[in-house]
Design a protein around this nucleic acid. Structure first.
Lengths: 124, 124
DNA sequence: CTAACTGTATTATAATAATTAATACAGTTA
DNA sequence: TAACTGTATTAATTATTATAATACAGTTAG
């Protein structure tokens, strides 16, 4: 399901969080989909279950997943709270990125093309 | 010149690197501008000089600054290498961000307005 | 020339963060 | 009942980060 990058300097649980978020945001994992259990994922990645536990706990706090004791962990439906905080975070990041792009001499049209490309795929 | 955020979980040297990059990218610091010496910056931020040393060493490797022994450290002119790696990095980040935006239901036009806003300020 | 500044390097230590390990408990499911 | 779930806890280990204390060689202003 996910792949760790050992050359990455960041902690494993951060990588796991990020990858899971990507899968959810890309809608590869959809609301109420079951995700691998703590132990199962740990075995797949050959790391300690506690590390997965840490990642899942964070993801639950951030409302990306929800867990049911003895049943499993599942992708959470998009919550209004999460949507709002993500919205502001994203706007900030986007602004910084666009500034960097401008600094690098990237044309406005290039950015707009990129956006078009992503939004087109929505229809698929 | 820069301000550390102690509530930030990332290492100090990472924060320093990031802030310096921001200043350089925003062109607040321009090529060949002298930046504070290792010891001076350490005193300003009340942290150990070795931590600054670490940040500066990284920044030099990434071609954001250059250092001259016994003279000081200075903002590097934009190198072609740096420009290229930054360009691909930025494109990747931008694509991820746009995907997130789409997932959140943000309209394409909203993103384009944001870009317009940033690019307009170039004339100032 | 000298005093005070530069970057750079080194080694040791302390402090913090991340990870593993080994369990345990309570509930679910086939 | 056996095998699975999430969750919690405590301890030990390892890795990373930060500090501390120096040292060296070169620059620069007075």
């Amino acid at each position: 399901m996910i792949q760790l990058d050992l050359s990455d300097h960041r902690p494993l649980y951060e990588q796991i969080k990020e990858k899971m978020k990507e899968l959810i945001i890309a809608e590869i994992l959809k609301p109420d989909d079951k995700i691998p259990s703590v132990r199962e994922m740990a075995q797949q990645l050959t790391i300690n279950p506690n590390t997965i536990q840490r990642a899942y706990r964070d993801l639950e706090t951030e409302r990306y997943i929800y867990s049911v004791r003895a049943k499993g962990s599942f992708v959470a439906p998009v919550s209004r709270v999460r949507e709002k905080t993500e919205n502001t975070e994203l706007t900030d990041e986007m602004e910084n990125l666009v500034k960097r792009a401008r600094f690098l001499g990237i044309k406005k049209e290039t950015l707009i093309d990129l956006i078009d490309g992503v939004y087109e795929k929505k229809e698929e």
